[in-house]
Every structure is written in structure tokens, then in C-alpha cells.
């Protein structure tokens, strides 16, 4: 069991998401940076989908009430155990009574704490992810607070990579190879696929969308990333039946996760966003790069690099291969 003292500013239990319910208006939720979440799980011998704690900008402080094997990945939040620094992207053993302190993010925005066996919260509609806007999943459907007690799973979700059951203790001391550790400060461009309704933009506006260094506003959270920058012009048109009067309105459509709408300034819809509505979605951040955007701090810049769907799918395949290689390398450490 992990006993929380300080919850940070927005720490929630997340797995890979509540997929399959989009048609009823339920967004997937799940880890904003699925790469960091997945690697954290692999480092402690879990399956990729085990629940971790996602911490935004500021980490948690907690007492570990049983011996456990943990890993912290994602944004560098200078984690420590009993005051002694521990490494990021590294498998660490903790003992009952140890004080875990995760500080604030110096590089990136979100860190993930994985525990061997996973964070044991109820499964709601196929996922343990917290969706705070309606208060379901995770720990009581909300962010973590002082006094919360989180059970550690008994290992149902433990990985069997390598053909034998992993023993998390044997992974202690594993450090993720340098080539797999992202440098979030360097990653200021994310790839997008234009559409579904980019035909509503003027040619100049499409260029502006892709040539601008957009600044992440303070309104950037699990629901959406609102960006600051120049105006985006829509083409003149006759208001279609069923569409709103604003030039950015179209007849309602389903919003792809990661899609960019421009009610005034661009908003990129993230894991907890509304699933459909009447704003033109002029582009979509490719799934692999959503995690990079989620690591951009408020006031940092981001640029959109337009690619085609084949490139997006190929990037996803490369990411999958990369994660398989990481899982195999970690399993090989035993």
C-alpha cells in the first residue's frame, strides 16, 4: 500500500485508456504520455497496461507501506527515497516505511510512477484510468490527495516476456539505455495529419498553422492544450443547415483524439476531451507525438509538422517496435 501525503497539483491513476466507448461520448483518458507510462511498467516487470500514477508538474510525497519495486519515468522530477536521490528511468527497490518524494518537473511536464504489480484500483468500463471530469476510474475518480491509500496489485498484470514469469526484484538496478530516454526540451515539433475539415481553412491559414511556433498557454491539461499565436482565417462560406454561425463551425462531427480545433486560437484535444461537436478539426496530432505534446510545459513553444497518414502509421509501427525492443532488453537484464 502507498499512503499519499502530498498529491501534487494533478496526480491521477492512469493506464493505457478506456478505449471502445468513444461512440457513447466517453473519451479514452489514460496516460498522456503512453511511452513513458509503458516504459515505467516494463522497468518493474508489469504489462504495458498496468495502472501507474501520472503526476503533472509536481510529484507526490508518500510513504510506502510494504516492500515494493518502483520506477519513475517521464518528466524529470528529481525523485528521492528517504531523502536520497534515485534515478529516473531506473528500477528501484523500496522497503516498507520508506518515504518517497517526487519533486517538480525541470524537463517535461508529466512523470509516471509504476509499482510492480500495478496500482490496484477498480476497473471501470474496461480501464483503471481516472476521468476526473465525470469522476470515474482511478482512485475515487479524482486526483490524489493527502491521506489517500492506494493498494498495490498482486501481480496479475505482471509481464511474462522472455517466456518465464518475471520477478520484479531481479529487475532492480535496471537502467533504461540512454538511446531510449527522451529529451523533452529538444522535442519542439509534433507531427500532424491535416484534416478532417482543413478545407475550411484558407491556403494562408494552412501555412500559418504549420509555420508558427505556437506557445502553450496556461490552459493546457488532460482535456486540451490551448495554444497562443496568430489568427487562423477560415474561408468565407454560406452557413450550412445544422452548423453554427462562426466560420469555424461545421455540422457536428466526431473529434479524433489529438485533433486541432480553432474556435479562436487552436486547441489540441487530449485524452479527456469531448468526443464530438461542431468545430472544424483542421488537423490531428499523430498518436505517437501526442505524448511529446503532453510533455511541453506551459509557455514553451510547439510547431506542427504536416505528414500524411502513411507516415503517421509508420511512426506508430516504429514506436511499437521500439517498445518491444525495450521490453526485451529489460527482460534480458534478469
Amino acid at each position: 500500500m502507498i499512503e499519499i501525503h502530498e498529491g501534487g497539483i494533478s496526480s491521477t491513476v492512469q493506464d493505457l485508456g478506456r478505449s471502445g466507448n468513444y461512440h457513447i461520448g466517453m473519451p479514452p483518458s489514460g496516460a498522456m504520455d503512453s511511452y513513458a507510462h509503458t516504459v515505467a511498467n516494463y522497468l518493474v516487470g508489469n504489462e504495458a497496461d498496468a495502472a501507474t500514477i501520472e503526476m503533472t508538474y509536481q510529484g507526490i510525497t508518500a510513504t510506502v507501506r510494504e516492500d515494493a519495486v518502483i520506477a519513475v519515468t517521464g518528466a524529470d522530477m528529481s525523485p528521492s527515497v528517504n531523502g536520497d536521490p534515485i534515478g529516473m528511468w531506473e528500477t528501484v527497490a523500496v522497503e516498507a516505511g520508506d518515504e518517497l518524494a517526487i519533486s517538480f518537473a525541470t524537463d517535461g511536464a508529466r512523470a509516471y510512477l509504476a509499482v510492480a504489480g500495478g496500482i490496484d484500483v477498480p476497473n471501470v468500463m474496461g480501464s483503471q484510468s481516472t476521468y476526473t471530469l465525470v469522476g470515474i476510474g482511478g482512485h475515487e475518480g479524482r486526483g490524489l490527495e493527502d491521506g489517500d491509500r492506494l493498494a498495490i496489485g498482486n501481480g496479475d498484470g505482471v509481464s511474462s516476456a522472455g517466456g518465464e514469469t518475471a520477478s520484479p526484484e531481479e529487475l532492480v538496478g535496471t537502467e533504461l539505455a540512454e538511446e531510449y530516454v527522451p529529451d523533452y526540451a529538444e522535442e519542439d515539433s509534433v507531427r500532424i495529419v491535416l484534416g478532417l475539415t482543413d478545407y475550411r481553412l484558407t491556403d494562408d491559414a494552412k501555412e500559418t498553422l504549420c509555420d508558427t511556433e505556437w506557445k502553450v498557454s496556461p490552459e493546457a491539461d488532460r482535456t486540451g492544450y490551448r495554444l497562443e499565436g496568430p489568427d487562423i482565417e477560415f474561408k468565407e462560406r454560406e452557413q450550412p443547415f445544422g452548423a453554427g454561425p462562426n466560420p469555424s463551425n461545421v455540422v457536428d462531427l466526431g473529434y479524433p483524439v489529438g485533433s486541432i480545433q480553432v474556435p479562436q486560437k487552436p486547441i489540441v484535444l487530449m485524452q479527456d476531451a469531448v468526443t464530438g461537436g461542431g468545430y472544424a478539426t483542421v488537423g490531428t496530432v499523430i498518436s505517437v507525438d501526442r505524448g511529446l505534446l503532453a510533455q511541453r510545459q506551459t509557455h514553451k513553444t510547439v510547431a506542427f509538422d504536416a505528414v500524411d497518414v502513411e507516415a503517421a502509421i509508420s511512426a506508430r509501427e516504429q514506436q511499437t517496435e521500439r517498445l518491444e525492443a525495450i521490453e526485451a532488453e529489460i527482460a534480458g537484464e534478469r
Binding site: Y57, Q58, S103, A105, P218, T298, H299
Partner: peptide
Amino acid sequence: ETTTINSPMPGV
């Protein structure tokens, strides 16, 4: 002695 008060998060 002087110390600074630092913000643990970005924002306004």
C-alpha cells in the same frame, strides 16, 4: 542571508 522563493510550476 537571502533566499529566493521559486515556483514549482510554470504558469501566470
